[in-house]
Amino acid sequence: MSLAAKDRRLGWGLIAPALIWTAAFFILPFLAMVALSFATMDGREVVRGFDPGNYVRIFSDPTMLGALWNSLEITVVVTVISVLLAYPLAAIIAFRVPARWQRLALLMAVLPFWTSYVVRSYSWLLVLGQNGVVNKALLGLGVIAEPLEIASTRAATVIGFVHFFVMLLTLTIYANLIQLSPNYARAAQDLGASRWQTFTHVILPLTLPGVVTGAFLTFVLCIGDYITPQILGGNTELTLPQLIMLQLGRSGNFPLASALSVVLMAVVTLAYFASSRWLRLDRV
């Protein structure tokens, strides 16, 4: 056997375990779920078949369309706010904070990232609840007369999400900013660009792939999350993941849950193609 053939055989041997794992526990389950989404329910029994009824129901039932719409709105709002808050934070840490304090400043800015995800949402409940810290403080200061209704609203969900994703995005954007040679900015200013022009014409385009990659991850994680809206948003309005979990729990309607998941997946795929020009998923 030739050397190249031996090398290839070795290569296949090394990559096979990872590929088989991904095929067996990711691709196959996904296909099984797609197949199941075309099944129907007879009482509590799943009847296999090819019936697009679940999809028809999703796109005609106002509750389901509403959940899809809620998820999209919340996700887009969260992604935009998070990027807008995280970029200046990352930039201040990268360019304003003296070099020897940067690692510490960054570490501090993202420390709560490492708390339990479930507990973090719960903590916001303590902060934003009717008898929570914010209301007690504002009442005590006399700013408001009646406690604000923040918990169990969309605002609470958005705040909880933004808190998490600002930290995630600060990390990824900082990593991008710090890689830029300071000579880019020097060259631009040397050639007569103002600070603002330097930012819009040089720094921003150079960091765009990193920002888009972070924003895409934010989108994916946010639209698929069950915990934050469940804990902070209450049950006044549903998001897609909450609806999926309801189908699984209450009625055991796996086919409908699968169809809803396929729709969720389709939304994420659309987001992927919308941003794929700038995406660098293999360099997160």
Binding site: T22, F26, I27, M33, S258, S261, D282
Partner: peptide, 19 residues
């Protein structure tokens, strides 16, 4: 293929495996 699961919601991965 190896990177793909990164772009998929955990809920979908979980539901697929459950199925």
């Amino acid at each position: 293929v190896l990177i793909a699961p990164m772009a998929v919601s955990y809920l979908i991965i979980a539901l697929g495996l459950l199925t």
